[in-house]
């Protein structure tokens, strides 16, 4: 009897009074148990911080050459050295963070929102809508992602907007397929029928009731795609189809640096390369962490 009373009291306490703190405590405990994910989250936080405050954080102007400091190795004055024009590598990497992250983010968000709606309606409606969507997706998927991105930037010209369009087109098929596949599964579940049976119009059932249940795999895909977007963009710039110089960008910096590979100025390609690797890795790790966190069935479990 007293045990039951105690239980009830504990229950109340937990929910009514300390609910917000309990949630934070749970999050903190999760992070302590997953130090790698925690580190990756910190890295992304750092990257976002750098991207936002780039102009303040840069020790030098990223695109102003200094003829007195050409090809200097890392030193206290230039922690990551200088390039062939005497521009500070650290400043350029910081400057490029803003560009790389915001293009990747824009591309992912655009692809995500289009892919979600198209995939959801395609999967829910089925029939000829589904058929047409799938064939279009097949066309997009027939190209390797990088070739597709190359083709689009080559056709449209390599402005920032066009690179973003190219990147989102490479992501789009994956989202459409993922959402559609999830929708096919989810629409046969009983709560889908229940949603119809209480008088929801079919677009509402698809977009409001069922779409959220298709999202957990999407969040993973989208975070991974953020990493790949950075990688693809850098690759485009590496072969000269991405962001045009003198705008600093990780890929074009790596490309510039690669020409010095044989002459020993390693800092020119290593540091931008590290920036790419760290960013892609961090997004991959956070993608996995998100999947675990967003699934309510795993909430509160160990």
């Amino acid at each position: 009897m007293s045990v039951v009373a105690q239980d009830v009291a504990d229950d109340r306490d937990d929910d009514a009074i300390v609910a917000p703190t309990a949630r934070w405590r749970r999050a903190a405990r999760w992070l302590r148990r997953n130090p790698v994910s925690a580190a990756a989250i910190v890295v992304i936080g750092l990257l976002v911080f750098i991207a936002v405050f780039a102009p303040v954080l840069e020790p030098y102007k990223p695109d102003v050459p200094d003829p007195m400091a050409v090809l200097k190795p890392p030193s206290w004055a230039h922690p990551l050295g200088t390039d062939g024009f005497g521009r500070d590598v650290l400043s350029r990497i910081i400057d490029a963070t803003t560009l790389d992250l915001s293009i990747a983010l824009a591309a992912t968000l655009v692809a995500l929102s289009i892919g979600m709606v198209v995939g959801a309606l395609s999967g829910y409606r089925g029939g000829w809508v589904d058929l047409i969507v799938l064939r279009l997706v097949d066309v997009l998927m027939a190209f390797p992602a990088f070739v597709l991105a190359m083709g689009i930037t080559a056709a449209l010209g390599n402005s920032i907007a066009n690179v973003a369009i190219a990147l989102s087109m490479t992501q789009l098929p994956a989202y459409i397929r993922l959402v559609r596949g999830e929708m096919l599964r989810v629409r046969t579940l009983e709560y889908a029928e229940a949603a119809v049976s209480i008088g929801n119009p079919s677009w509402r059932v698809a977009l409001v009731h069922l779409l959220p249940n298709c999202l957990p795999p999407l969040t993973v895909q989208a975070t991974l795609a953020m990493g790949y977007a950075v990688l693809t963009m850098a690759s485009l710039s590496f072969i000269g189809l991405g962001i045009a110089p003198p705008q600093s960008e990780w890929g074009s910096m790596t490309a510039d640096g690669a020409t010095y590979m044989s002459t020993g100025e390693w800092w020119l390609f290593v540091f931008p390369g590290v920036a790419i690797v760290v960013t892609v890795l961090a997004f991959n790790l956070v993608g996995d962490a998100l999947r675990d966190l967003l699934d309510p069935r795993l909430r509160g479990t160990r």
């Binding site: 579940l189 009983e190 709560y191 029928e193 229940a194 949603a195 119809v196 049976s197 209480i198 008088g199 929801n200 119009p201 009731h209 959220p212 249940n213 309510p296 069935r297």
Partner: peptide
């Protein structure tokens, strides 16, 4: 649609799976 759920309501066979899990 205006009748379903408003004038005629359904209590399903499997309550747990008829609720949206999210």
């Amino acid at each position: 649609e205006a009748i379903r759920g408003a004038r005629i309501a359904l209590v399903p066979q499997t309550p747990r799976t008829s609720l949206n899990p999210l």
